[in-house]
Every structure is written in C-alpha cells, then in structure tokens.
Design a protein around this nucleic acid. Structure first.
Lengths: 130, 130
DNA sequence: TGCGGTACTTACCTTTTCGTAAGGGGGACG
DNA sequence: CGTCCCCCTTACGAAAAGGTAAGTACCGCA
C-alpha cells in the first residue's frame, strides 16, 4: 500500500477503501480499465491527459500491490504490457458506481449553480467571487 | 475544495467524488456524522483517535465549503458548535455505503490472509516480508 | 490561584505526493 | 543515420498535506 496506516490500521471500511483509491489518477485508471477491460501502458497514458509516465507506473504498481490490477508482461520486442482489473478490482468498481453517480450529479448541479452565479453577476455588471 | 482541479475540471464523477472525500480524516468525519446525526467539535475529536485540532477544523471547514456539512454556532458561553450532514452530505454517505462494505470485506480478507501468512512463515521459522 | 473545558487560530516544521527531465535498450521506419 | 515508439527507471525539486506546539478569550470548579 506504500502508505502508513493510522494506528491499528483501519477504523471502518470507508477508511480502507479510500486508502487504495487515493492518488491523483487512481480513480481514472480504475475507470478506464473498467470501461475498456484491457489497456496497454501507452493507451492509459493517452487516456489520462496530463499524467506523467512516472506517476502512471507508480500508481499502476500500487494498484497491483493492492490486488486490484493485473499486470501481464509479454516478452516481446517491442515490449508489450497489458493491464486489467482483478476480481477485487471489478468489485471495487462496482462499489464505486454509486459514488461516481453522486459525483456526476454534483458536477451537473455545480455547473448549473455556476452558470446561475455568472448570470446573476452579469446582470449586476460584475464578476462573481471577485 | 481548496485543491486545484486538473485542467477543465473533472473527467468523470469518480474524480469529483474522490476530490471531496480525499483527506486523512474526511471519511471518518462523514461516517461519524452519519451514524450520530449531530456532533460537537470535541465529540468528533474524541471519535477520531489521533486527529489534531488543526486538521479537524480544517477538514470540517472544507466539508462545509463543499456543502456536505452544516455548521451551527450557538453564541453561548462556553461556545457550542454543532456539526451535521446536509442533504448532499447524506446523499454522499448513501453513495459511500457500497464502498464501505467493499472496504470492510477487504479488511476481513486481509486479516485472514495476514494470519495465514504469519502462520505459514511461523511454520518455516521466520518472519514474513523481511 | 490554578486547572480544565469550550472551539478554535497561528506559526513552524516534517512528511508525502506530484511533476520535470533525463536515460536505457531494443526495433521499426524514413 | 536519425528519429520515433515501447515501457519503464532514476534523480532532483517543488508543492501540498499533515503534525506539533503554543496562544486566544471566557467560564466553572476547587
């Protein structure tokens, strides 16, 4: 896990679950692997705009250590490495689905709120949160 | 939110949801407020073994800014402040429930695995993982 | 008079995380 | 011959997150 647990590791399941998905790109990696099944390193890199190779390998290794992602190396030239979800990884993604729906709804409401804010500020002739 | 979003903020709902619950104690705070309804500052502090006052106030303020937690201040002496979940906060906790279940199951399986590991290592007469 | 309890705030420091840049060892392509 | 692609690895440094300790202002209790 590469992270030090609190003292006497986890207090509840949320705690344990958040521990393995915390990381700037882990949610997206899981999401990408869930929707495509199998992805290669370069494919993931292209799917995650802005990720560095270092962070991608690092996160993939952590997810692998945590038993969520399977890493299959083909001893070919050029080298080929395929990433996919393990059984646990798929279960995690199932568990993440309601959270994703909540997040999507939140984004939607916030964009509406922001538009409203901007429109209201516009009507008053100045910018919001100046 | 106090965190800088990626470029063009969120790619998917998971992303947005993880953003608001990422923080060493936020999951626990949400959990505590969900199971007790209303909690005061000192009650939360006692419920989160090891949290510092600084982190607790900081996380509570972020959760409040994110519209997940309601903060009610009573102008009394001694001061009294009550924290509770907003509608959005309750919805988030609902969405977190499957994740919590997954985490609980994971903890259970890991403790079994660890016991097995220790037992196996014990049988060989040495400690696991160096 | 001193201590504990209320709910913080502030300054300072350490730890963790993330990003940047470079290299590596091959093979395909022009 | 040079360059790109593949999948990383390493070193270095900045930024963010988190921890420690002290201070605030007021009250009740002994």
């Amino acid at each position: 896990m590469a992270r030090a647990p609190r003292q006497g590791p986890y207090i509840c399941g949320i705690d344990a679950a958040l521990d393995v998905v915390s990381g700037k790109w882990k949610g997206l990696i899981l999401w990408e692997l869930d929707s495509h099944g199998v992805r290669r390193f370069a494919e993931l890199r292209r799917a995650l705009p802005g990720v560095s190779e270092k962070m991608l390998t690092q996160h993939l290794r952590e997810l692998e250590e945590d038993g969520l992602v399977h890493r299959e190396v083909y001893a070919e030239v050029p080298p080929r490495v395929e990433y996919s979800l393990t059984e646990q990884g798929r279960a995690l993604n199932q568990a993440l689905r309601p959270l994703g729906a909540w997040g999507t709804e939140r984004i939607r409401q916030q964009s509406i709120a922001t538009v409203g804010e901007v429109a209201a500020a516009d009507a008053r002739g100045r910018a919001p949160r100046g």
